[in-house]
Structure formats: C-alpha cells, structure tokens
Design a protein around this nucleic acid. Structure first.
Lengths: 113, 113
DNA sequence: ACATCATTTTAGTTATAACTAAACTAATGC
DNA sequence: GCATTAGTTTAGTTATAACTAAAATGATGT
C-alpha cells in the first residue's frame, strides 16, 4: 500500500483504526469517542488513513461511514491486534498521546480573514 | 519494541537498515554508501534505530559497527524484505527520498557560537 | 430557497523531525 | 602530550505534521 507506515506511525491514527476495527462508525462517532480533539483534526486523520488505503469510506445520507480494511494491513495486522490485546493498551495509549500532545495545545490568538 | 513504527517510518532509515541487513558495516561505511547526507545526520539516524532496538552496535577500535537485528522486527521483517525484493525498489526509494529531501536543503547563514 | 446537520477543507500556529556545520569525545599512534 | 581518524552531540534552520477555529461543501427537510 501507499504510505502505510507513515499512516500507522502516529498513536492517534492507530487509536482511530482500532475504533473502527470491528464495527464501522461515522466520522462523528469517531470524533465523540476520541473526545479531546476537534472534528476537523479527526477528519484530517481519516483522510490520511483513507489515502493510504487503510480504511474504506462510504456515504450514508449526510454521514460518512468509515471501516478498517483489515486485509490491506498485511503483516501489520497481527502487530496491531496483538498490541490491542495487551491489557495495558489503554494505559500505554494515554501516555503516548500525552507525549504527542505536547504538540499544538494552547491557542495563541486568532487571525483576520 | 519501543518505537518501531516511528523508526521505520522514514525512507532514510529504511535505506540504512537495508544497508546493514545482511552484513554489518561501520558508521563511516554507511555514510559513504548513502552519499548525499552528512555524517552527523547518519549518526542521528543510527541512534534512533539503536534506541528503538532495530540495530545492534558495537565498538571496534575507533569504529562503530552496526548490524540489523532482524529478529527484533517481528512482522515488519517480511514487509521490509519483500519491499526490497522489488526490482523497482531503488527507483521508488529515489523518488521517496527526493520527496523527503524537500526538507532542509539549502543552508541559509551560519550562527555565532 | 433557506435552515440545519454532518463532514471536509482551509488558513494559520506550534511542535517535531531531518538536516547542516561545527564542537566535542574517544581510540590510536607518534 | 599532540595529531589524526572515526564517530557523536549540539545548536540552529527548514519542512512537515498535528492541531484549532472558521469557512466551505453537501445532503436532508421544510
């Protein structure tokens, strides 16, 4: 697949992938499940995942439904699933996200436009 | 392993990994084989690879010898090797590196110190 | 057409990553 | 100790990535 590794390299996208691993969900569902990130950011991550072929998307009225393409993951599939089986997964994820979230946090000021 | 995906996510580090896949090499060898990047940058990549457990390093006089730890790659091993079997690999790599190299290219000016 | 809801896209900010040049460290040989 | 060679680390630059807020798109319902 296209840029599989890049797409998988961030904890946020792996979290999203996990959310839609078994059951498909709408973009809004995913956004609500994540909780600490804007809708826009989620949509951008979904685009990256879709472009890399890791998720499939379809329209349903005014919703977009996302679903993981488990088959497209090849050897990574086992790796991902095993990481999720880990009882400590949630904890690890929290920590990793906390780290990553030293990213753009407090907003400074708005711009004209 | 620690941050396997992050370490593997860049073409440069995958290229390095490939160079030391079958036979170990010194840092200098790797640097010369790459050709278009400074020694410092190579050393930094080697550090990332070592920290993530993907390569093993040992001292030999004033040399440092690096060797891929194929076993540490788990499911990624097959993926990497298959990507290298591809006859188009070198070409793909070039293109990907060209892309990545829209990164820090022309130097601007030096700093005091 | 207009309002509303769901989502995507855009513009801008901050942190991070890949890099260069130069300083530093370490082993070897004189 | 000093010079040389090999490699690492540091400081600074540029590009990229993850994010926010707001604008834009698109489907549905009136």
């Amino acid at each position: 697949m296209r840029a599989t590794l890049r797409a998988l390299a961030t904890p946020r996208r792996r979290e999203i992938l996990r959310l839609i691993w078994r059951d498909e969900r709408t973009a809004g569902d995913i956004h609500r499940a994540l909780g600490d990130v804007t809708f826009g950011a989620v949509s951008q991550h979904l685009k990256v995942l879709a472009d890399s072929g890791l998720v499939r998307r379809r329209r349903d009225g005014r919703h977009r439904i996302y679903e993981a393409r488990q088959d497209s993951l090849g050897p990574f599939r086992a790796w991902l699933e095993s990481s999720w089986d880990d009882a400590l997964y949630r904890l690890k994820l929290r920590a990793e996200l906390e780290d990553a979230r030293r990213g753009p946090r407090p907003r400074s000021r708005r711009r004209r436009r």
